[in-house]
Structure formats: structure tokens, C-alpha cells
Design a protein around this nucleic acid. Structure first.
Length: 568
DNA sequence: GAAATTTGCCAC
DNA sequence: AAACGTGGCAAATTTC
């Protein structure tokens, strides 16, 4: 059963039960306490409904505030974006109002801008009512019911409706998880974080000045150069290196490392610590950690490949050194699960390459591939390393360095896998669309790209056109793998989440607290750790079967039960 | 003086 | 070794 719901933004709502195809099966119900009604369904209904709404970010947060967790939803906005994308219209407005307007041939309103990230402090009204995107006089619940039914029709009409329906379901489940994770937060010990900073940078400066260690390094660098240099300024560094007879093309660390001069170690150390200070220093701590929790603001579907993005806080780039501050509460533990070598395994599964699939049946795919790249007195580890570069080159389109030779080995040993990514690259170069396994679709080329590639007066692409074409080829080559890996992760996330919701008994329940591309972290009461490990294994199995059915490929999880995330 | 762009490094 | 995909973010720098 499905239930369409629109809220009145004061705790009440109007509801209507729907059949799977979106046809209303009952009257409109007006309720004053949506949370109470939802809780009733959780307790009494046989089979949990799928809640249909315009936007998860609009309806779900107040329910989570009231300690409610829902099993499933259909987020009309997210599904509209997926459907538009499928038809090469990624980036067009996808709100309920926009979908309704397209359905009725009316002018399509722009999407409202998401509220700017507000740090750890939730904004007073989490989401402004999105009423403005529907014309006056149009009933919001009627519009929702109508657009949802239309989406179900459009999905049913696709060549692979089952796959796309799964994509819509897990994208929506991801939206539920994102709201819950923003609510629960990653357990974060500000005192440990502060100690890490003090150890490396010296005591926190009072006025926001340079920390002592950075100030000393800056002074030392200026002394070595024999002039005043701000090491934060690439331009000044460039000039300073030229002035001492060591001109460099850029101030990137790898390039500076090649320079033999006593100033170099100081500059490198400065860069390292300066990054720590600016990206995850005291200012970050003040802004993003409250009451022992870091609450990232996830953007579901924020990346074209289907990976998530975040708004502020840099949750998806937490440096390894800082992860020491992520600690389970007393009596709790962290259970992390990481899908190792996910992308090559995905390539093996989608391409149907027998030899690659056989290698992907083992725990260390690259080691298994080593036999192909070894021989001639090459050590096992060396062969494994070559295999890794070969596979990554195939997926990323790398051609420089040793890649070319390794790629020809790849073509010989794994012809179908190579053909799969080569075909995607060709499609991209020719301006066509490519899709993930479940149907997420890459953006169409821009008009600028088309002009560039259709190129010069003779119609042949010139230098810029050729470069643009190859660039897009690398993008689509990678897209088919990265986007499918992202949906593997989403299906897995949804499976884990569903199991956690089924076990939810309130405060002492295991919680999902972090999701990063191919990795999940749960915060778990200690006695439940074993159960969570089993649950993760179950979800992995389910994910593989749902996506790829009968395949030799395995997706081994690296699971760690730890107090501190740095030990995972 | 605000907004946009560039640079460089972090994550997967 | 440094032209290999997706991103976020902060500080410097340039543009309006």
C-alpha cells in the first residue's frame, strides 16, 4: 500500500491511500497529528506502507524529531530528477510543482534553492513550504497524487521498469537515511579533536591568528628565502622559488618534493599543517560539532553519478588523522563496513566478463589478477600493483605512463570488460548518453561542448574539440562504473537501514551514522554488535542478488568493530 | 566591497 | 609518475 501525504507545516497533514500504480483507493483524510497517525501505522498496519511525498527533507525531519522511523517512501522530487535524467534532461526543475506544470503544459517554475547550510544549528524552519511552485488554486495533495501516478506510468513504460523502480526506491530510502543521519550525528569527541590540533599546531591562538607552529614555520620559510613570503600564497611561493634558482611549474607538493633545497621540508610541513588548521581546525570544530555529535548535511543524488554530496562540513573528506576524534559513546561501539575494490567488481558484474568475474570471486581481486600481469621475474606484489593500475586505467581512461602497455594486457585478458568501458567512452565522445545498471543517466553534453566538437569550418573537431570529446569519453567511461557502484552502495544502505528500522526500539538501538560512497558506519550498543555484523552480511548478500542475480562476482565487506573510527 | 575564479589538497 | 574519474572546501587572487 502507498499513502500520499502533504503536510500543513504545523504538524497536521492530508493523506490518501493509493494502489501501487498510484490510483487513489480511498478518500482524503485530514489529520491534525501526522506523527500520531504514522506511529499508528507502524504499530498496527499489516505490511508497512510506502509514503509518497513531494520532498523527504520537507516531511520527514519533524517525524524523526519525534523519534519515528519510517520503512519506505517515494520521493517525488528525487524520482522526477531520475526520470528527467533518463531522457537527457538532467538539471531541469524537478520539484512537485515543476512536474505538475510539465504534465499540464504550464510554465515550469524553477526549483527553490535549498536553504544554505547552517552548521550544527538547525535552522528555525527546516524547510520553507514549497507551496510557491504550484499555481494558486491547485490542490497540493491532488497534484501529488497525479504526478506520482504519472511517474509510475513513466517507469512502467521504460525498457527495464523493474530496475528503474529499484533505483527510485533506493534513492528515496537514501533520503530517509540522510535525514536520520543528520539527526543522529557522528559521535565526535571535541576534546580528542582539540588534543590532536594542539599536538600538531600548538595551543589554540586566542584571536584567530596563526597557530604557533604555523607561525614558526612561516618565519623559518621567509628566513630561508631571504625575503618575506606568505606560504599560503602560491604566487609568492612561485616567485620565491624562482628567485633562489629553483623555478617550479606549480607549488603542488609532489612537484616541490623534487626540489633539493633546505626550504622545501618547511614548506611541505607548512602546507600539511595549514590544511589541517583551515579544513578541520578549531573553527570547523566550533561550527560543526555540538553536544558530541558531528551532523553532516548530506545531499542525496548531489553528484551526477548518484554519489552523495554534502553541504558544508566536508563530511566526505574527513582526513585520516582527524578520525581519531570519532569515538563510540561509553557502552557503545562503532561497526564499520567497507566494500573493498567495489568498482572493479562492479565492472566484472555489469560487463559479464568471465575472467574478470572469476577474479572478482576472490577477496583480493588485484592479487588474483597479478597472475595475468606477472611473469618475467616480477614479484607478486609488483604484479598486483600493475594489475591495479591496469584496471584503474581502464575505468578512468588513463593513457599516460605505463598505462598503455597495461591496457593492452587488459584487452587481451579481459576483452568483454574492456569492450564495456570502451563502448561507454565512444558513446560519450559522440555526444550520446550512457546509463548505470539501474538506469541512472549521465548529463547530456552542453551546447558549448557540441559547438566545440562539431568544431572548425570543415566540421572536423579541432584541437579543443578533440580534447573536449576525449574528456567526455573519459567521463562516460567512468560513469557507467562509478554510477553502478554508487547504486550498489545505495541498495546496500537501503537494506541495512530497513533491517535497523525493523529492530528499532528507541534510544538503545543501533543507528546508521555515516555513509561515504562505499562505506557505512553504525553506532551500536555493545551487546548488539554481533547482530549488526550479521545484518551487514545479510544485506550484502541481498544487494548482490537484487542487482546482479546469479553472478560469480563477490562484494566482500571489510567489517570492523571498533571504539575509534581511526582503527577501522 | 562583494562575487567569481584559481589554486591546491582532502576523500572515494 | 604527476593530463586519471567524481566531488568539497578554504585562502588567495581577480573581476565587477
Amino acid at each position: 500500500m502507498r499513502i500520499a501525504v502533504v503536510t500543513d507545516f504545523e504538524g497536521g497533514a492530508r493523506l490518501r491511500e493509493l494502489a501501487a500504480d498510484g490510483t487513489p483507493t480511498g478518500p482524503v483524510r485530514t489529520v491534525s497529528d501526522l506523527a500520531g497517525v504514522v506511529a499508528d501505522y507502524r504499530r498496527h498496519a499489516t505490511g508497512q506502507p510506502r509514503w509518497v511525498w513531494a520532498s523527504t527533507g520537507e516531511v520527514y525531519p519533524p517525524l524523526v524529531e519525534r523519534s519515528l522511523r519510517l520503512g519506505r517512501c517515494h520521493d517525488v522530487g528525487l524520482v522526477e530528477a531520475l526520470l528527467l535524467g533518463y531522457h537527457g534532461r538532467l538539471g531541469e526543475a524537478h520539484s512537485l510543482g515543476a512536474a505538475w506544470a510539465r504534465l499540464h503544459g504550464r510554465p515550469v517554475p524553477d526549483d527553490l534553492r535549498a536553504p544554505p547550510g547552517a552548521g550544527a544549528e538547525p535552522p528555525p524552519a527546516l524547510f520553507e513550504p514549497d507551496l510557491s511552485t504550484l499555481p494558486p488554486g491547485v490542490d497540493r495533495l491532488d497534484a501529488l497524487v497525479e504526478v506520482h501516478a504519472d511517474q509510475q506510468r513513466r517507469i512502467a513504460g521504460l525498457p527495464e521498469p523493474g530496475r528503474f523502480a529499484l533505483l527510485a526506491a533506493v534513492e528515496s530510502a537514501g533520503a530517509l537515511a540522510a535525514v536520520e543521519m543528520a539527526h543522529d550525528g557522528v559521535p565526535w569527541r571535541a576534546d580528542v579533536h582539540d588534543a590532536i590540533l594542539a599536538e600538531q599546531l600548538g595551543p589554540r591562538p586566542s584571536n584567530g591568528a596563526r597557530p604557533p607552529v604555523l607561525a614558526e614555520l612561516a618565519a623559518r620559510i621567509s628566513a630561508e628565502f631571504g625575503r618575506e613570503v606568505n606560504p599560503d600564497s602560491p604566487a609568492q611561493l612561485l616567485r620565491a622559488f624562482a628567485a633562489i634558482g629553483h623555478p617550479v611549474g606549480s607549488t603542488r607538493s609532489w612537484e616541490l618534493r623534487q626540489v633539493e633545497h633546505p626550504v622545501v621540508p618547511f614548506v611541505l610541513r607548512y602546507k600539511e599543517l595549514s590544511r589541517l588548521h583551515s579544513a578541520c581546525g578549531w573553527a570547523w570544530l566550533d561550527t560543526w560539532v555540538r553536544h558530541g555529535r558531528f551532523r553532516p548535511d548530506y545531499v542525496v543524488g548531489g553528484v551526477v553519478s548518484g554519489r552523495w554530496a554534502t553541504r558544508g562540513g566536508g563530511a566526505l573528506q574527513i582526513p585520516k588523522t582527524v578520525r581519531r576524534a570519532v569515538r563510540a559513546d561509553p557502552g557503545w561501539t562503532l561497526v564499520s563496513a567497507d566494500a573493498g575494490q567495489l568498482e572493479p567488481r562492479v565492472l566484472a558484474a555489469v560487463s559479464g566478463d568471465r575472467a574478470l568475474a572469476a577474479a572478482a570471486g576472490s577477496d583480493d581481486l588485484y592479487a588474483r589478477l597479478g597472475t595475468v600481469f606477472g611473469g618475467g621475474g616480477v614479484s607478486e606484489e609488483e604484479a598486483r600493483q600493475r594489475a591495479k593500475i591496469g584496471v584503474l586505467s581502464a575505468m578512468y581512461g588513463q593513457t599516460s605512463g605505463d598505462a598503455a602497455a597495461l591496457l593492452s594486457t587488459m584487452r587481451r585478458a579481459f576483452p568483454r570488460a574492456m569492450e564495456y568501458v570502451d563502448t561507454a567512452a565512444r558513446a560519450g565522445e559522440e555526444g550520446r548518453l550512457v546509463r548505470s545498471w539501474l538506469g541512472r543517466t549521465c548529463p547530456p553534453p552542453s551546447s558549448r561542448w557540441r559547438r566545440l566538437v562539431s568544431g572548425g569550418p570543415g566540421g572536423e573537431p579541432d584541437g579543443d574539440g578533440g580534447r573536449a570529446a576525449r574528456e567526455r569519453g573519459r567521463f562516460t567511461r567512468n560513469f557507467v562504473v562509478q554510477a553502478t557502484a554508487a547504486e550498489w552502495a545505495l541498495v546496500f544502505l537501503a537494506g541495512v537501514r530497513r533491517r535497523l528500522v525493523a529492530r528499532d526500539t528507541g534510544r538503545e538501538s543501533a543507528r546508521l551514522v555515516f555513509f561515504q560512497h562505499d562505506e557505512l558506519v553504525l553506532h551500536v550498543p555493545e551487546p548488539l554488535a554481533d547482530d549488526c555484523v550479521a545484518l551487514l552480511r545479510e544485506a550484502e548478500e541481498e544487494t548482490r542478488l537484487l542487482l546482479f542475480g546469479d553472478t560469480e562476482v563477490r562484494f566482500p565487506l571489510d567489517i570492523a568493530v571498533v571504539d575509534c573510527y581511526a582503527d577501522a
